[in-house]
Design a protein around this nucleic acid. Sequence first.
DNA 1: CGAATCGTTGATTCAACTCAACGCGAGTGG
DNA 2: CCACTCGCGTTGAGTTGAATCAACGATTCG
Lengths: 244, 244
Amino acid sequence: MAELSTLDRIFQRLNSHDDLGSAEYKALSGLDFTQREIEPGQYVLREGDRPKFCAFLLNGYVYRHKIVGDGGRQIVSIHVPTDFVDVQNMLLDYADHNIQALTAATLMTIPVQDLIALAMTNQKISRAMWRESLVEASIMREWIANIGRRDARSRTAHMLCEVAVRREKAGLGARETFDLPMTQEQLGDALGLTAVHVNRTLKSLEIDGLIVRSKRSVTVADWTGLQSVGDFTSNYLHFGSSTG
Amino acid sequence: MAELSTLDRIFQRLNSHDDLGSAEYKALSGLDFTQREIEPGQYVLREGDRPKFCAFLLNGYVYRHKIVGDGGRQIVSIHVPTDFVDVQNMLLDYADHNIQALTAATLMTIPVQDLIALAMTNQKISRAMWRESLVEASIMREWIANIGRRDARSRTAHMLCEVAVRREKAGLGARETFDLPMTQEQLGDALGLTAVHVNRTLKSLEIDGLIVRSKRSVTVADWTGLQSVGDFTSNYLHFGSSTG
DNA sequence: CGAATCGTTGATTCAACTCAACGCGAGTGG
DNA sequence: CCACTCGCGTTGAGTTGAATCAACGATTCG
């Protein structure tokens, strides 16, 4: 498979939501893209900021989080390449959460106003971007259920499955080969657990032969088993377009 | 204040997201509305169903929930009158969650295809509905943080604050007078707690003078106190339009 | 090579769950 | 009109999953 251009990747992503044509491709190509390299831990947007750019993630991991009153942090979503990391804020006056790089990452930023203007004049793009935000919301609902109703083992397995499948869908390799470079502290913040308990939970999953760990990375060893422990199905990821 | 017609209420709701004009009012009035009365516990939509209608809630409470593998239930959102209860599903091929009436409720249903068609031809309506769905997503992020990072007391107080404020915003009376007719079982399913623990938590909030309970209803006794215990601010509800 | 960050493990505590009994009010049927 | 049931709320006792506290390894990086 030939290397895809950035524009192709954005087009392909939106095209997965709605059937786009050459008019849309042309319209997208007219956007004012800026490539931006960010370092691990760097903030893309802070709570309270007015969003000025919408970003398409080309490389690396990015996550969004909220800080609660006692200083606790909750990661509310994780983004893999080909995700838009800012559709959620596009039409809102200020960000209700922080966006931060997990690893070194490459973003393609687009001025929010331009993107809104494009969506307002192109139905298909509007529909595709809207759908993108709805699928994200569906993932959030699953996270609510995951954190609210599954125990640590199941919850952790579920999250690993989700990231594995989303990476695979994005063309980043088979689900069995994915790599998740999060610290146990960060995993805890995503799962509503403490780092210590994440450590014990991962160990337990490894002992059961479901995952393999080496250094700071996790690999799936037994997909079926992990899926079963994690009570995971990919329905809520809504692969397949609205017109299909 | 004169009684508002259903159409006025829908217009007003969308107008809170984006400045609409008479063209939008006229377009909305052309929609094929059907009023539908539903009973407590009745399903509006089931997981896996293909959404055919989008509903505007006129009266009563409605909630959405997911069932996890071990039979546990997690409520992922609660709706008060003037909420749209189905924008989340509009562009998705099948529902990833259930929608059920909490109390007797009145819905105004609109065929999904008609509403999409309208949005695709009217930028302002499209933008307003899109924004409606983004605000809902913001509420879900707050729920993730609430369930993941706050203890039972704070978590419960936070949810009470949210419903109180959303009801007030919808013109259903001051936040101190709201009534939440949920069983403790249902509250538990919304908060990721058991009914027994909800009972103890509510009791504790009442002893501290933050709420008053009588029969199956909760009233706010000390708003400032409840807000403080619940670590609640209304930022994430994004009152105020995108153009303001 | 030292410092800092992150992972690992054990001991202990605690918040929330489970189990179980009982109370209460609304509705129902004899 | 009372007895019965049923669903829900309340309370206590005991258990447990996850948090906390604390120490020590391992890894990375300047």
